[in-house]
Structures are given as C-alpha cells and as structure tokens.
C-alpha cells in the first residue's frame, strides 16, 4: 500500500507522504472536511473562547444590553467573591423572567435568579467553570493513565497483572458512585469543586491506562524498541522517548471525548451538591438551585441544561470527527 511503498523510497528516512498521512495538518484537514466534526470544532472553539474571555474581562454588563447591578455582577463571578457586600434595598430584582416574556426586560435577556443575579452573566461565566473542570480532570486522568498504562504494558508480567486487576476492580464500581464516595472522603465531608476535579481525574486513570496499555503492547514489539534496547537505552527513557509518543493518537481522541463525559459527570456532581458550591456559577450547581423553583420559575431550569447540552455536543462531534480522521480504517 501507499505507506509501505513510500517507506521504501530509498532515502532512508520517512518520506513526506508518510508525514502527510499522519501529521497534524493532515488530521486537522480531515476533521474540517467532515461537516458535523467541523461544527463540533466551532462549538468547542466558541466555548473555549467564552471561558478565556471571561477570565480576562470581568465586566460583562455591556453584553446584557444595560446596566447589571454591581451586586448581581459581583455575585455572578467566581473571581469576585464579595460575601461581605450587602446589597442596598431596592437594588435586588429577583425572579425577573427572560426578555421574550411579557414581564421580561432587555437588561436581563435570560432573566434573573431568586437572588437578583443576572442569569445570562452567570451562564456565560459557567463556561469557565465547566471547561476548566473538564480539561483539568481529563488531564489528571490522561497523565496518570499514560504513566500507569505505559509501565504496565511495557514491563508486562507481574506488574501488569497487578495493575490490570486493579483497573478491572475500579471498573466494577459505577464511576459516578465511586467519584461521589471518593470526593466526599478526600474532602472529609466538605465538598468543593477542587475535590471534585481531583476525584474525577483519579477515577479516570484506569480508563486511560487500559487504552494506553493496549497500544503499548503492540508498540513494544516494534523493531525500533528492539534497536533502542540493543543500543543500551534505559527502560525509563525507552518508555518516555519511544513508547509513549507512539501510542498517543488513540488516547488523544479518547481524551477529547472524555472532556465531554467529564463535564457531564461534574455537572451531575454539582447538581447533587458534591461539586461546585454557591456562589460559583456552575451549570450543574445552578440546576441544583433551580430544582427548588421548578413550579414558579421555569427558565431557571432550562438555560443551564441547554448550556451543558451544547458544550458536550460540541466535544462529542469534534471527538467523533477526530476519531474518524485518525482511524486508518476510515481512510479511503
């Protein structure tokens, strides 16, 4: 086939053809050719942009077509915690319905929550929380899983047996339950978003470890590993320089899909009250609060869920596209 032929091109090193087939630019091009994957990428880029923007610019009132009270702003932002600030009477305008409602105003396009905080602002700031949670805990699982999986797959034998039995056992406890129990135990009964991130990350180490391991098992048999061993390279360096880089692609795809899953799980944790705590504007936590207002303020339950749905859909579409692009079987 094309790959085999081009490798025999005479000049020794991998030809451009091989690089073109597996390079990042080629993968990106394939993703962009796929309409749904492209839209997924747009959504992911948008959510990432929004969360980066809110980290830099903390005054969003210009986006809400009018002045949002200081109190509403301060309380909406995770970085501006002002618990001591007591709002002057008359400044709070709680339970304002969304703009399209008869009683709605344009200064609060999505209405306000019972505490008078602008809901649109809170939703926008929620992106920052969800995205950082998704990325950081996926990263923990990814790095931890890569180390465990690479060691397990490379050394094999007893190390592999023990580690894989452990992985299997962790698999047997439903992730959400393991995460809740783990988070509560490490936090000693005072849950917080930081513990949730660590808990989710550690719980997903086995998942990543298993994928990396199966890749490593095939990479291990390659000639270049044999060559490295023969020239006396230390095992640690072989793992770091040769094994891990070459087993990377499938794990990367999985990590992209995993960010969506993580956001979903952390939203569930926060919804149950074991993740982000008020006043952090986390989408799951907002749904927890709105659960008590389902009869009176319907909109409070709708927007955060929509935000979660769109974000996760973006990551899923992009991840699927990436998978297709990196999977040699779908290359025509």
């Amino acid at each position: 086939m094309a790959i085999g032929e081009s490798q025999l091109d005479g000049d020794g090193g991998p030809s451009e053809d091989v690089e073109a087939q597996f390079g990042w630019r080629y993968t990106f091009g394939k993703v962009m050719q796929d309409t749904t994957a492209r839209w997924g990428l747009y959504v992911v880029a948008f959510v990432l942009f929004v969360s980066a923007y809110t980290m830099v610019d903390s005054n969003l009132s210009r986006l809400t077509f009018g002045a949002v009270s200081d109190f509403a702003m301060a309380e909406a932002l995770p970085i501006f915690d002002h618990p001591e600030r007591i709002p002057p009477p008359g400044e709070i305008e709680g339970n304002v319905p969304p703009a399209f409602h008869v009683d709605g105003t344009l200064s609060h396009p999505l209405g306000t929550d019972p505490d008078g905080r602008d809901y649109f602002t809170r939703i926008v700031y929620g992106a920052q929380v969800s995205v950082s949670v998704g990325i950081v805990s996926t990263l923990i699982g990814f790095v931890g899983g890569t180390i465990v999986g690479a060691v397990s797959g490379f050394y094999g034998g007893r190390v592999d047996d023990v580690l894989m039995r452990l992985v299997e056992t962790v698999y047997a406890i439903p992730p959400l339950i393991l995460i809740i129990v783990f988070t509560v135990f490490i936090s000693g009964g005072t849950p917080d978003i930081t513990y949730a991130i660590i808990g989710v990350g550690i719980t997903f180490i086995p998942v990543f470890a298993r994928i990396i391991r199966s890749e490593v098992l095939s990479v291990r048999e390659m000639d270049y590993i044999e060559a490295a061993k023969a020239s006396g390279v230390k095992n640690r360096n072989i793992i770091r320089r040769h094994v891990i880089p070459n087993s990377f692609a499938p794990v990367l795809v999985y990590a992209t899909l995993q960010i969506g899953v993580t956001i979903l799980i952390v939203a569930g944790l926060s919804f149950l009250g074991f993740g982000a705590q008020p006043p952090t504007p986390d989408w799951g936590q907002m749904l927890n609060v709105s659960h008590g207002y389902m009869h009176s303020n319907v909109w409070l339950s709708i927007w955060p869920g929509m935000a979660i749905l769109v974000t996760i859909m973006g990551f899923n579409l992009f991840g699927d596209g990436l998978q297709d692009a990196l999977d040699p079987r779908t290359n025509d």
């Binding site: 749904l287 389902m294 339950s301 979660i308 996760i312």
Partner: peptide, 22 residues
Amino acid sequence: ALLGVSTPSFWIGIMLILVFAI
C-alpha cells in the same frame, strides 16, 4: 442519538417534569 448522548440525564428528568407534570 447525538442529543441522547450529550444531554445530562438529570436535566432530561427535570424537563420531563416541567412538561408532563407541571
């Protein structure tokens, strides 16, 4: 399928309650 995979189950529950119960 895409919507089903991307929507939090508890939010589906909340929406079902809003529509069918409330």
